[in-house]
């Protein structure tokens, strides 16, 4: 009898453990998001607003070359190009660049731009105060727009890094529309 009780107790504890691990699997999702944001993995840090630390100084002694590239996911029929192919920036300095997008699909579209930054070790230092990738973007049929990105590079970035690439992949986000649809903040509609 005693042993049956002990068995039940241990089984119960282990089942709790199993349930916890199942939950842990789902916890991995926000956990991963958090670590990626912190470490800049997959450009996750570049997907949300950061504000410049007060008293951040511009380091004029260093210049970092930033390349901009764009990718159309599954070749969605957009024209999507950086208006600046490459700029030089000093760490700590905030710059504004524009990306041009035109909806050529013949339909209304909701798109989401996913940023990605290389080298991976530079990613967490590239910070944005405003970006069209923070939210989904709505495009009417044939609509064109210039979309802004305000960004700076944290002076804490490793001195070895002299080139950074910022890439945006434009995804068709239909079916995943968020509530703030038709979001067009900061956009210059042409």
């Amino acid at each position: 009898m005693n042993i049956q009780k002990a068995n039940k107790r241990l089984t119960f504890m282990l089942v709790c453990g199993v349930i916890f691990m199942f939950g842990f699997c789902y916890m991995l999702v926000p956990l991963y998001e958090l670590i990626c944001k912190k470490e800049g993995i997959n450009g996750k840090s570049a997907r949300s607003v950061t504000t410049a630390a007060p008293g951040m100084k511009i380091d004029y002694s260093r210049t970092i070359k930033v390349d901009f590239i764009t990718v159309l996911h599954h070749d969605i029929r957009f024209k999507f190009i950086p208006l600046h192919r490459r700029i030089d920036i000093h760490p700590g300095e905030t710059k504004l660049v524009y990306f041009f997008a035109e909806n050529q699909t013949g339909n209304e579209m909701t798109v989401q731009a996913i940023p990605s930054i290389t080298p991976t070790d530079a990613a967490r230092f590239l910070k944005k105060t405003e970006c069209f990738c923070f939210t989904q973007q709505f495009f009417a049929r044939g609509q064109k727009a210039d979309m802004p990105v305000y960004f700076f590079i944290d002076p804490a970035i490793s001195k070895d890094i002299k080139e950074v690439t910022l890439s945006y992949t434009l995804f068709d986000a239909r079916g995943f529309e968020k509530k703030q649809a038709h979001f067009t903040k900061g956009r210059i509609n042409l």
Binding site: V18, M21, F22, F24, C25, Y26, H73, Q112, F171, A173
Partner: peptide
């Protein structure tokens, strides 16, 4: 094993219940 179960469950949800655990578009 529960993590594997969770993983395939996420796949199932992505495929049919309109979540986007693994889909960058969402």
């Amino acid at each position: 094993m529960p993590v594997l179960a969770g993983c395939v469950t996420m796949m199932l949800m992505d495929r049919h219940f309109h979540t986007s655990f693994f889909n960058a578009a969402g």
